[in-house]
Amino acid sequence: MTGDDKPRAQLERERFERARSMRNYAIAGILLFLVALFFVMTVVRLGGHVAD
C-alpha cells in the first residue's frame, strides 16, 4: 500500500503521532537546557568557591 492509498484518518493519525513526538522532543530539549543553564549559573555564582 502506498502513502496515497492510506485512509485519511490513518494519515491524520500518523501526522498526529509525529507532531506529538516532536513536541515531546521539544519539551525534553527545553528541560535539558534548563538543567544545564542552572548548573552553569550555579558554577558562575559560586565562582572561585565552587569546590568549597
Binding site: R8, A9, E12, R15, F16, R23
Partner: peptide, 17 residues
C-alpha cells in the same frame, strides 16, 4: 484518539507554538 476520525484530530505542531 482511536475513536476520532482524521478531521477531528486537530493538533498543533511545534511550529504553531
Amino acid at each position: 484518539q482511536q475513536s476520532l476520525t482524521g478531521a477531528d484530530l486537530n493538533f498543533a505542531s511545534v511550529g504553531d507554538y
